[in-house]
């Protein structure tokens, strides 16, 4: 049955080469921890992607309960953490996943740097990777405000003050983030939109580029 459906689609769309392209690429010995234990340093990139998947999934479930306004935000986080079945686990995954993602991304960046893998011809993929790092930091920054407790509020106030102090463009970016004269109702709505729409869209686009480039160029050779 499944085979028949697959054949029916494949006959029309020729999908076999698409997944065979992913499946058949060879993994060289020097990055395979089954052959050399020290090759575990090549796992950090994949683990970062794994954490990103955890973040996307847990975030989608959090969005079912979270209310992005100044009256209900804090209450809704408390509710989903204390009352909702598995809520503490899902919020815990998203909370700790944010830190673990930064750690894994950092380790991956260091692996690529210290193995010199960013050099010709892989310059472009390095740039895309650093942009992914910036987007992830942006996700951490915007997500920090969303529980709307004192820690979140005052950290964001300081952040926007720092942004405002950037010469020439700082005040405009600050206003764009804050959305008004004070850190308040507009700010939480904007941070929420940036956190769940703008930055994830940018992240998915960059990740797609990152993976297409690595498939076209292959992983860098042994040192």
């Amino acid at each position: 049955m499944l085979r028949a459906i697959y054949d029916w689609v494949d006959e029309r769309l020729d999908i076999t080469p698409i997944w065979r392209d992913v499946a058949d690429h060879e993994v060289p010995e020097h990055v395979n921890p089954a052959h050399h234990f020290s090759a575990f340093i090549y796992c950090f990139g994949g683990l970062t992607f794994f954490v990103v998947l955890i973040q996307i999934l847990s975030g989608m479930f959090l969005a079912m309960y979270y209310v992005p306004d100044i009256i209900n935000a804090n209450e809704s986080v408390k509710y989903l953490q204390d009352e909702v079945a598995m809520g503490a686990i899902v919020r815990g995954m998203h909370h700790w996943g944010a830190s673990v993602a930064i750690v894994m991304l950092f380790l991956h960046t260091m692996r690529v740097f210290f193995t010199g893998s960013y050099k010709n011809p892989r310059e472009l993929n390095w740039v895309v990777g650093v942009l992914i790092f910036f987007v992830m930091l942006g996700l951490g920054l915007t997500g920090y405000l969303l529980p709307w407790d004192n820690k979140a509020y005052f950290a964001t106030k300081v952040t926007i003050e720092i942004v405002n102090s950037v010469p020439f463009i700082g005040e405009y970016i600050g206003l764009l983030l804050q959305g008004g004269d004070i850190v308040g109702a507009q700010t939480i709505a904007r941070f929420f939109a940036i956190h769940v729409f703008f930055l994830p869209a940018a992240l998915l686009g960059l990740l797609g580029a990152h993976f297409i480039i690595i498939r076209r160029q292959g992983i860098s050779g042994p040192l």
């Binding site: 954490v51 986080v77 919020r91 700790w96 004192n150």
Partner: peptide
């Protein structure tokens, strides 16, 4: 990862109070 998640429940503070002048702001560790 799940051991970390289950061992440490993330904290949630009191609702933001802009008039609180004694709160020490601190960003996320990274």
């Amino acid at each position: 990862f799940m051991t970390l998640v289950m061992a440490h429940v993330p904290a949630i503070g009191e609702v933001a109070d802009p008039t609180n002048s004694s709160f020490l702001p601190v960003p996320d560790w990274y």
